[in-house]
Design a protein around this nucleic acid. Structure first.
Lengths: 249, 249
DNA sequence: TATTATTGTTCCAAAATGAGACAATAACCA
DNA sequence: TGGTTATTGTCTCATTTTGGAACAATAATA
C-alpha cells in the first residue's frame, strides 16, 4: 500500500492535473465586525499560504474552483468570483514549497511537478463564518481564519493576491446594489440588524458611512424584510432584525 | 533550411511556451463612431478568431501579453487590462484549429501541442485605430478590424470572451472618471470635440446620454484642455476641440 | 422615575442630475 | 446681404440624491 506514503494528489507526475496551472483562493468570512480569510499554516516552516488547488484534465476551470473550495470549507453553493490570474516569473520560487514538502517527509526531486512554475487563477469567495469547517490540505497543518487587518507573512505573492481580491470585492460592492442579498447573505447570519449590515459595508470598504443615509439607501432597495426586535440587553432602544427574502428560483 | 517550413513558433513541442496556457485579446479601436475589434481571418476555413498568443517559459504573464500585442498591432505603450481566464473543457475542440493548420499545409499529429486543451487568459486593449498596423500571425491570412455590432462567427468561445471584455470595459468606465485620459486617449485622435467624446461613451455603454449633463460632467472633471474651434464645413456653430493634458511623469 | 445609549425617522441644506430653453454661431441659400 | 438651418455652449429650473444634524422612541439601569 505504498500509495499511502505518496498521496495520490502528490504523485510524482501530477498527471491528472493541468500542468503549470493552479488556483488560489481568498476566502472571506465576517465575524465580530472583522473581515477574515482562511490561511493554511505550515507550522514547521513559519509559512502561511492561501488555500489553492489544481484543475483536473477533464474539469472546467470554474468547476475545479468549486470542488477545491468545497474540500477546504465543507460548503457548497458558495459565492465565488474569479478575479485575476497571476503569472509573474518571480512567483516561481521552489524554496518555500520544497521546505514545506520536506517538513512533511517528502523528498521531491528538482523536477517534481509541484516545484515547476505555476500561473495561478485567483478566486475570491464569501462564506458563512459560522458554517464553514476549515479543513487543512495534505501539506499543511491547519486551515484557519486570520483577520485581514493582521495577516501573518504569506508565501510568494499571496499578499498581493489578497490585496487584489479585496480591491475587486470593493469594486464589485459598488456595482451590485441589486445583488446585495447574493453577496451579503453568506457573510451575515440568517437575521441581522441594520447596524451589523452597515458594519459589514464599512469593514469591506474600509471607511465609515453615515448612519441615516445608509439606512435610507438600504430600505429604499426594498429588499430587506423587517422582523422582530433584537433585545441585546443594552440600555437603549432595540434594533429591528432583518433578513433577505427567500431565493426565488 | 527546413525550419522555414515549420516556423519556430509552431515547432512540434512548443517547448519554449508554458504548456496548456494561452492568451486571447479583445483589441478595441474606435472609428467613425463605431467600436471595432481586431480579428484574425482564416479565409480557407471561414473561421474568425481573436488574436492570441503564448507565454514563454521565462516571461511574466503580463509581459507576454504586451509582447504579443505589440506583434499584432505594431504598437507599444498600450492600454491593457487582464479581465478573465477561460477554462471550460468545451473550449477544447481540435477540429477548428486542425482545419486551420491543414489549410496552411501543416499536418499536425493528434498530440501536437497546439491541439491540446488550453486555458486562456483574456485581455482587453484600447488602441488608436489610426496608428495601429494590424499584422496577421503565422496561421492566419489577415488581421483586420470588425465592427463590434456586426461580428462574423467566431471560433470556440471567442464570442463569449468578447462579451465579457465588453462588460468589463463598461464596468471599468463607471469607476474610472479620474482615469479618463488614460483609457479614452488611445481611442480618440489627439484632439476631439465634446460630441466625439460623448459618442465614444455612448458607443461603449450602448445607450444615449444627455448632452448638457454630459458636457457639464466632463468639464467639471477639470481635465480637458480647450483649444481652438473645429470648422467642419457644416452650417452650424463650430464645436471646440479638446485634448488631454500632457502626461506628467 | 430620571438617566443613558442606541435606534428609527424626520428635516433641511447642499449637491447632483434631468429636461429643456435659449442665444451664438458657421455655412448655406434666396 | 440678410434670412435659414443645424449644432453647440451655456443657463435655468424642477427633481432627485446626499450630507449632516436633530429629535423622538425606546430598553435597560440607577
Amino acid at each position: 500500500m505504498s500509495q499511502h506514503l505518496i498521496p495520490e494528489e502528490l504523485n510524482p507526475e501530477g498527471a491528472d492535473f493541468l500542468p503549470g496551472l493552479a488556483m488560489d483562493f481568498v476566502i472571506f468570512g465576517f465575524h465580530q465586525n472583522q473581515l477574515k480569510i482562511l490561511l493554511l499554516d505550515y507550522r514547521n516552516t513559519d509559512l502561511f499560504a492561501l488555500p489553492g488547488g489544481f484543475i483536473r484534465q477533464n474539469e472546467n476551470l470554474n468547476d475545479a474552483a468549486r470542488r477545491v473550495l468545497a474540500e477546504r470549507t465543507s460548503l457548497t453553493d458558495i459565492y465565488l468570483e474569479q478575479f485575476y490570474s497571476f503569472g509573474d516569473v518571480a512567483r516561481h520560487d521552489v524554496a518555500p514549497l520544497r521546505a514545506i514538502m520536506e517538513a512533511k517527509g517528502l523528498k521531491p526531486g528538482d523536477d517534481h511537478w509541484l516545484l515547476r512554475r505555476f500561473v495561478s487563477v485567483g478566486y475570491y469567495a464569501l462564506i458563512d463564518f459560522t458554517k464553514a469547517v476549515p479543513i487543512a490540505d495534505l501539506l499543511s497543518d491547519s486551515c484557519a481564519w486570520y483577520e485581514l487587518t493582521n495577516l501573518p507573512p504569506l508565501m510568494l505573492d499571496h499578499r498581493a493576491i489578497v490585496q487584489k481580491a479585496l480591491e475587486t470585492l470593493r469594486a464589485d460592492l459598488d456595482r451590485k446594489g441589486a445583488g446585495l442579498n447574493r453577496w451579503a447573505a453568506p457573510l451575515l447570519s440568517e437575521t441581522f440588524t441594520m447596524g451589523e449590515l452597515q458594519s459589514l459595508y464599512e469593514t469591506i470598504l474600509g471607511q465609515k458611512l453615515r448612519r441615516s443615509s445608509f439606512q435610507r439607501k438600504m430600505l429604499s432597495l426594498d429588499i430587506l424584510v423587517r422582523l422582530d426586535k433584537k433585545y441585546s440587553g443594552g440600555a437603549h432602544k432595540a434594533p429591528y432584525r432583518y433578513r433577505f427574502p427567500a431565493e426565488e428560483k
